[in-house]
Amino acid sequence: MQGNVLITGGAGFIGSRLGRRFADEGYRVTVLDSLIPQVHGEDPETTSPLLATVREFATVIKGTVTSAADIAAAVEGQNIIVHLAAETGTGQSMYEIDRYVEANVGGTAKLLDALANGEHQVERIVVASSRSIYGEGAYRTPAGDLVYPPHRDDAAMAAGDFAVHQPGVEGPLELVATSETATIHPSSVYGITKHVQESLVMTVAPTIGVEPVALRYQNVYGPGQSLKNPYTGILSIFSTLIRQGKPINIFEDGLESRDFVYIDDVVNATYLAATVPGAASQIINVGSGVATTVSDVVAALFSAFGREVPTTVSGNYRLGDIRHNFADTSRAAEMLGVSATVDFDEGVRRFVDWVLTEPVEGDNYQKSLDEMASRNLLK
């Protein structure tokens, strides 16, 4: 055996694949997961294929990182911790504030508190951070200066101006890759909690003899991601609408973009971050390094499904959303020796092939939009 690894949130999309990788490499895997209905269904024992898969290779503890007792039971005897447990969803975080802060910040604090105040054998902790901590991505001005623009103005977006502007700068900004040295200015409660999570781990771990690594994930997608959760993952959301024959509402002007990174590449980077000696104390972007627009996402899904549904580019927008962000992945290449191996079109084809083997989920997406609109967060 290589050693013992604990994966918090390990029955989820990334954790289940990562746990399999550790098990295949000879590690003894323990998973701590609260099995929330939003991801696993109301009866995870029968509705969560991810849970069934994880039980093939791991010891599963049903519990939560917000419970000191659950954490104490899970960390005993562990050598590596990969901390994935978190509430996810930019929009939902803006009105379920206490829930997000309790899980993401409070849960991380309890995990570190257990290590700081008890006996342990943990040598490294990898925390799943997020590109959301950057807020808007990096840009160059017409004069060639690198800038990190502030959040977009509600009034400007209401008038149909979705572009990113830098105060005092005339002319359009050029989008460039965002590196780990970028200004941190999250635009959502979710982003704030991920920044605090990362900061807690990177600050506390070295003081208790644990090597920290923070991975700033971009938009992770692929087979196995939740088709039930209407708050995260536009590929899942749009796929369900396509299968139901329902129209797709593309927000803003459809040119907003994200960095989509395939699950296998994320698992590989995370495993190496947990095991490669040179990764200790590093903060590393995990992405494809390619910006893909929402309109391109829809086109790729139509191609993979071999069918289309009506689409509307509506000009709707959500407060807290960013316009663009894609990762500078040079540090991942340098420190982990990795780069994205699955391009977006191929990844979407694999994703759709898997989706077509799954039952069509109920339409909870509209409910999530109605919740945001009722709070004046969706315009």
Score class of each variant (00 low, 15 high):
residue 113 D to E: 12
residue 111 L to H: 09
residue 172 P to L: 11
residue 158 A to S: 15
residue 138 A to M: 12
residue 124 R to H: 04
residue 104 N to L: 03
residue 114 A to E: 12
residue 158 A to D: 08
residue 102 E to K: 11
residue 190 Y to F: 10
residue 190 Y to V: 07
residue 96 E to A: 03
residue 174 E to G: 04
residue 126 V to R: 02
residue 144 G to M: 08
residue 120 H to M: 03
residue 111 L to M: 14
residue 186 P to E: 05
residue 132 S to W: 02
residue 113 D to K: 07
residue 143 A to T: 13
residue 93 S to A: 03
residue 112 L to F: 02
residue 99 R to A: 11
residue 160 G to A: 07
residue 134 Y to V: 07
residue 156 A to Y: 12
residue 95 Y to V: 03
residue 180 E to F: 06
residue 164 V to Y: 04
residue 148 Y to S: 10
residue 163 A to S: 15
residue 177 A to H: 05
residue 98 D to Q: 10
residue 132 S to M: 13
residue 185 H to N: 13
residue 130 S to N: 09
residue 109 A to C: 03
residue 157 M to R: 15
residue 143 A to R: 14
residue 142 P to L: 10
residue 148 Y to K: 12
residue 137 G to T: 01
residue 177 A to N: 02
residue 140 R to A: 00
residue 120 H to A: 05
residue 157 M to Y: 13
residue 155 A to R: 15
residue 98 D to M: 04
residue 131 R to I: 14
residue 107 G to V: 09
residue 106 G to Q: 10
residue 111 L to R: 10
residue 104 N to G: 04
residue 104 N to K: 02
residue 159 A to V: 04
residue 152 R to E: 07
residue 162 F to P: 13
residue 120 H to D: 01
residue 132 S to I: 11
residue 115 L to K: 07
residue 104 N to P: 07
residue 95 Y to E: 00
residue 119 E to F: 08
